[in-house]
Design a protein around this nucleic acid. Structure first.
Lengths: 196, 196, 196, 196
DNA sequence: GGCTAAGCGAGACGGTACGTCTGGTCTTATG
DNA sequence: CATAAGACCAGACGTACCGTCTCGCTTAGCC
């Protein structure tokens, strides 16, 4: 009702509308036309924003993607906090598999893993701002469950996480999809102590 | 006065020297300056070859890389053929981990996995010419061992391969290295039947 | 402890200090770094003034220059008023030549002649605010001397002025300097009646 | 009849058609929309040429203009060569006045005089490639006439040229037009010796 | 003496053009 | 007929200014 009919920028403070337009434009372009269509010019065009506005706030288009990924995965793939049960953990990794294979934001994740291969700077901030913090939360999730006696894996928490997310990500990267039951099989196998 | 110092092309047949110069130039550039330095112009410059010569024989720089990867991994990471023992399999995956983390050709593999994310055409020929054939050989290796009774994994051969290579590749892609013992732990865990 | 070191603007009336800072900044930039360095942003930076303050009071950077030119040439190159002798006229044109070739304000004049070529709006206000009024005074100077019988040129006053300032300006514009004696020769030649 | 219906560029040699398209585009843009519309992008657009093609052959748009000026004034404002009469000289300066005030190429000349004010690099090559050679020819024209006894001016040849072209150029630059008879009056006045 | 109005420094904004780089296509000349 | 060379069109890169705008502030001048 009270919305202005034209976006009006906010003067000497950062324009939140422009920020969001950029993030959405980047996301949309990636999903619709792939990473190669994700040029700063195209983002600016699509967002109705000047190139300079992008360069003012983000050092590269990769950081734009990273921002969308961080926001989206905080919303749509939260790591369980507090005391986690084996069921919580299984649920998290199932959601992770779905996120990576079906959520648009999952495509962003894969694109960033890829881009980090090509560009050391990307790798660095991708780790610092996404992978590392998330890994910490995941580790805490596993550890809390171990502490509570819910599971007693033979591997370290890190190795467990790699052993589950690794195959999921690898199959997603190679475009072969994650087969039904793979996550469950891995989780079952890894979280319980090996007999003998 | 015997010139001959300069490579002299051969007339109406494809110039093998040019082909090899291109492959080596691509490999070297990737290792020395990373994927972002790997432009067709740079390859041509380094190989002492005209751009057109590259475009004549390869549809893109990615196919150049793919050719080097195919040649190099046939040489340096052969899949065991014939009857394979559990030991052979473990050995193969150990060599795989070393290849991916330490061999220059492993960098090519990672770069192609990455590039396949950005470009559907790359993905297609990367699968058809590298991943698929290799996966077939790996599957045969596992199957022959199962048939011989050497192992009896709970998962399908494909799942086993993913469960081992997945974490290795994932850690390599995220630049975190593959910890000592990870491969062995995964192999031990997956090749032997689950108790109970 | 009495701060006051920082210029403090004056509230709801135009800030004279800002006005002068702008004029001087423009002048300095032109002389030091040439016309191409004379951007509104650079003037604002140098003057310690916001861009908006410039746009509030001047329609363009050219008008800033024009203001400095008008002030400076009123001070340093006044046209003789009242009854003029041939000697006054010669003196004026000598000062004009020196102004155009050596005075920083002369550079401003040349820059505006140039800019007027590129921009019709500049041309218009440059004529209206500088060239026309000045030409009127020059014409009056010549006319008063003719009336007094001091000279009797074969050409109209306008043509005389053009015939003297033209070569001076042309040589200044082409950076070739005004040779000693050129002004005197032209003045001698033009102010006295042609024999025969 | 035999013209190709599409311009086809000429391979590894410079494309003459592209060169001419650029020169004409620059000329046209200057005349139609003024110097401020003369951007490299606009020239490229208009000429149907890639920007890089312009940057490959010209260091700046100014050099493009300079090339058009050199070609055009060789064609349309040749300096008389060989023994020149007073009539030839008068004719040349009359043509010069018409060139500067009415010929599109004259606009290019004025634009370059202007731009040379703003940019030292422009000034340098404008002098070296246009003004200096032309001045040499003009000086030779005057000298040959003096030698033949056709005229005996009180001023040096250079001063004579400046005294005639100066006012013409100055009036053209200030957009006031060159009045009928001004050139003749100046020529008459300057080429004949002052009596007494 | 509080209120209003304008000027101010600061700087974000949507744009345009800059000059550079690479991509992928084409032509020429050489062998 | 393959090659080295390299010109060509296309279009993205990241930067500099443009001219407009809003912010938060300071200072008159009016009630």
């Amino acid at each position: 009702m009270t919305t202005a009919n034209r976006r009006t920028h906010s003067g000497s403070r950062r324009d939140e509308a422009a920020r969001e337009a950029v993030l959405h434009a980047a996301d949309d372009l990636l999903v619709e036309h792939g990473f190669s269509a994700l040029t700063v010019e195209a983002i600016a065009r699509r967002a109705g924003v000047a190139k300079q506005t992008i360069y003012r706030w983000w050092p590269s288009k990769v950081e734009v993607l990273l921002d969308t990924l961080i926001e989206d995965s905080a919303k749509r793939l939260p790591v369980p906090v507090g005391e986690a049960t084996a069921k919580d953990i299984r649920g998290y990794f199932r959601r992770f598999a779905r996120f990576v294979t079906r959520d648009p934001a999952g495509q962003v994740l894969l694109a960033l893993i890829a881009e980090a291969q090509h560009n050391p700077g990307t790798a660095k901030s991708f780790h610092a701002r996404y992978l590392r913090p998330r890994r910490e939360q995941e580790r805490a999730m596993i550890a809390s469950c171990v502490d509570a006696g819910g599971i007693s894996p033979a591997l370290t928490p890190d190795a467990v996480i790699d052993a589950i997310t690794g195959p999921v990500v690898y199959r997603a990267l190679t475009g072969t999809g994650v087969p039904r039951g793979l996550v469950d099989a891995l989780v079952d196998d890894l979280l319980k102590p090996r007999s003998g």
